[in-house]
Design a protein around this nucleic acid. Sequence first.
DNA 1: CATGAATGAGGTTTCATTCAT
DNA 2: AATGAATGAAACCTCATTCAT
Lengths: 203, 203, 203, 203
Amino acid sequence: MPRTEDQYEQIRESKKKLIMDTALELFANQGYYPTSISIIAKKAGISKGLLYNYFKSKEDLIKEIINQGIDELFETFDPDRDGVLTEDEFDYLVHENFRLIKNNIQHWKLFFAISMQPPVFKVVKERIGEFMPKYINIMAKYYNKRGVSNPVTEALFFGAVMDGVSLNYVADPDKFPLEEITQKIIDVFSHKNSQKEQNEKNK
Amino acid sequence: MPRTEDQYEQIRESKKKLIMDTALELFANQGYYPTSISIIAKKAGISKGLLYNYFKSKEDLIKEIINQGIDELFETFDPDRDGVLTEDEFDYLVHENFRLIKNNIQHWKLFFAISMQPPVFKVVKERIGEFMPKYINIMAKYYNKRGVSNPVTEALFFGAVMDGVSLNYVADPDKFPLEEITQKIIDVFSHKNSQKEQNEKNK
Amino acid sequence: MPRTEDQYEQIRESKKKLIMDTALELFANQGYYPTSISIIAKKAGISKGLLYNYFKSKEDLIKEIINQGIDELFETFDPDRDGVLTEDEFDYLVHENFRLIKNNIQHWKLFFAISMQPPVFKVVKERIGEFMPKYINIMAKYYNKRGVSNPVTEALFFGAVMDGVSLNYVADPDKFPLEEITQKIIDVFSHKNSQKEQNEKNK
Amino acid sequence: MPRTEDQYEQIRESKKKLIMDTALELFANQGYYPTSISIIAKKAGISKGLLYNYFKSKEDLIKEIINQGIDELFETFDPDRDGVLTEDEFDYLVHENFRLIKNNIQHWKLFFAISMQPPVFKVVKERIGEFMPKYINIMAKYYNKRGVSNPVTEALFFGAVMDGVSLNYVADPDKFPLEEITQKIIDVFSHKNSQKEQNEKNK
DNA sequence: CATGAATGAGGTTTCATTCAT
DNA sequence: AATGAATGAAACCTCATTCAT
């Protein structure tokens, strides 16, 4: 008697996760190209052939890993999905972003290490391309409300700063003062005072 | 009539540059691993054998390219080498940094793409390790003078922001408003007003 | 209520036919080697494992398919199995051979496409080897009776012509004038006149 | 000092021939798919890598071999290229065709074995498509002159017979009486008598 | 200094077949 | 009878590097 469909599904699910986790760790430590399918299979305790039962190519494997990471990252943004960012949500966004990275430094270190390599970068760029319009729309609205000149530019600036800080933290977590810099980012980029002035003018 | 030794040296030098420039362009566009020595040699119009006359391995070639880039970058900092950064020099530093990247986008694309990769990472980390103490010293002194609390943190923040902005610009040069953001960086990180207040208090 | 053994047998039989028909179509369109067991199973709507329940290997599968085709073809020859070929039977043989092909061009096109590939050819050659003595015996007797010199050679010639015409028809059925050429074959190879002369001499 | 271009050209020429000859022999005996690049390289006494220096894929290799064979075959037809086939030239054509096949049985074994197979079929069909109009034109003219009814049909018939005989000879060269059948073909298809009758009627 | 034919180790991928369920 | 996950051998192919010339 064959297994039930549910059993097969479960096997596939867990084995796929095993392969992706193993590959992520190796890709991050050694890089994408220097990590061979053989090594991944060996470390995951499976045969090379089986890996191709789950991913149709090495590139497909890295793409799935990357997309998974990007999905997680994007979810921190606009958590209640109402298209409007409040000041509290801005604070949350910044803190949550770094909390995510801090809680799984190894994961993000690895993620940063590979996301700029050619076969991966293409995927990353595509996904970011999808995400950007929504991001810019919400952020620009936020800055516009607070009287910031060039709100789109400010949104892009803020995004770049988040990238740079994440990158530096991940590159050397022990020496980088993430908490203090988180606060500095909020001071500089939340524009809370601007909003107050704006409100008072409206009275 | 045989060439003088000087002429030979000159030929060697220019051929080496040709190889490095060709390789840089290919590495930047296709990545390090996907670019073969064959392709580099063909594009440079020389034989594979000759390339090995100038670089002892593919890894050696990329290391020289990376080091060249790092040298250039570090030179923008503290140009008169007096250990003190003036506000004009701060402005120059920011502008010059981005001018450099803008003038040679490919180099920096490559740099970002591979700087976290195993064969290159060691070199990059070493070079940055050399540079950091001097950088932190000068920047902290600069912020200290202008009454910034946590001047070291501010220096690290500034560094991270420069990284993030450079990265975002290089990733999509056409859509990233580098000029405006350069100005925003100077507004936020030069702390010119603080200095004025400082000076007046000193009177 | 359990099925009777007969019903089981019937199910087995029809499933086997399903597999063979599916495989034949795929083998013919894509070739033997490029067609994987996986694809055959998927197209037949069964599992790979089940296929091995019916055929002990891929080679076994193709051999059964080929043998089936050969059986059908050989049956056109000497239909009343009396070991003697009359002129009417000769006509029937030629017409029936082409009718068979014409009625199922796809099938024969596919069949021709694979029968010359090494793993298949071995089987074909074997079967033809079995068939040839009987064929030669009957044909040679036929030509001998009609006073043809070298009756064995004539039999081989006739066989080769049937092959060539079948092949050409199947390769491009729309442009090949099968009816007219069938008539030409009978004109050339039935040696009816010879027989008449022979008969008249016998009087 | 490097070799001269001529020397390189010569090396390439002879090595390419070596590879093609070796591959042809193996392909013909074992089939295309069952013959591995490794085996070809080993038999040719070179490395696998070098083979890919001359042919960009296994498919490229077989295509070049096939095209070479087709070129050779087509050259036997209408040797003086005056567009008219004399009876002597007809005799020559038949004899030369079989002489060619006899002298290089392996090539033709391979040719028949794979010409209907996916990777090769497209090439073969294209090449035959180029050749057919010219062939039909000349042959039909030949038969027309000799008063054969349906000269185009006769031309196609003759072509099919040549195919069938070639195929049967190649399939089992030891047992197939090629010489005698060659004579029979000429007897049946040259229509020499018809011409005579034709000429006499013209008087 | 300069060439490119040649190597060989190692990469990715495929697939017939097995087997626990 | 039926499933499809799992295997492993072997296929095709790439490419940094060497070396005779």
